[in-house]
Amino acid sequence: MTCDEAEVLLHALIDGELDASHIRDVENHLAGCPRCAAALRDYRNMSKMMAEGDVRYTAPAALRQRIEAALPQLKASPDRRAVLRGFAMGSAVSALAATGLVAIVLRQDDMERIQAEVVSAHLRSLQAGHLTDVVSTDRHTVKPWFNGKLDVAPPVVDLTAQGFTLIGGRLDYVDARPIGAIVYKRRSHVINLFVAQTVSTEHHAAKTDALQGFNIRRWSERGLNYWAISDIARDELAEFGEKFEAAMRTGSAG
C-alpha cells in the first residue's frame, strides 16, 4: 500500500468504516511508515479533542419559539386551550385573557375543529365499554364523581321526567384537554353533553349543526360552553337543549 492510499484509508480506520482485510493492509503500512503513523496519531488526537471541546452551538430560544409558532397547532394552542380552560385559572389571568380571547375563541374554524373533535369523542363513547365512567341515574352521584377530575364539576341535570334519562358521566378529551361528558339516553339513542369552561361569560344562543350524520347543538351560558351531540332528530335535540337550559334557570342542577 502506498502513502497516498493509506492517507485516505486511515480515516476510515479512525471512523470504524473499514473492513477487516483493509484494516490489516493499513496497519501493515503504518507499521513501516512513521509519517503516516504520525498523521494517524494526530488525527486521533484531533478527534478526541474535538469531542471533548465544546464545538457545538445551541439554538437560540427565540429560534425555537419562531419554529414552534410557525407550526399549525402549536401556534394557536394556547388560545384554543383557553376555550376549555378551567375556572381555576386566576381571575386576573382570565380577565386579561378574556379581553384578547373572545374573538379568537369564537372564530369559525376553531369552532369547526372543536366540533369535529366532539364528533370523534362521541363516536369513541359509543364503542363498547366507553360510554360511561360513572353509571348512575342519580345526579347526586354523577356530579361529585367529577370532583377532583376537572377544575370545576359540570352541572348535572336530571331530565328523566322530560324524557331524557340520565345514565352517567365520563371524563373525555377534546382539544387535548380533559372535559366532562354527561350521558343521557332518549329511547335507545345516546346523547353526549360535553361541558367545558370558557373565559367568556357571554351568553350565546343555541346553534345546531349537522356533522357526519350527527346533530350538534352548542350554546354558552355563565362561563360554560355546551355541546350536545346525538343521532336523534334535530328537533328532539333542540327539545333536549331547551329542557336542559330551562332546568338550569330554575336551579334544579346538581
Binding site: 397547532q73 402549536l74 374554524d109 369547526e112 375543529r113 373533535e117 370523534s120
Partner: peptide
Amino acid sequence: MPRKKSEDPEKAL
C-alpha cells in the same frame, strides 16, 4: 373540511 383541520395539529405534534 373539519377532518383535514383536525389532522394538521396531529401532524404538527
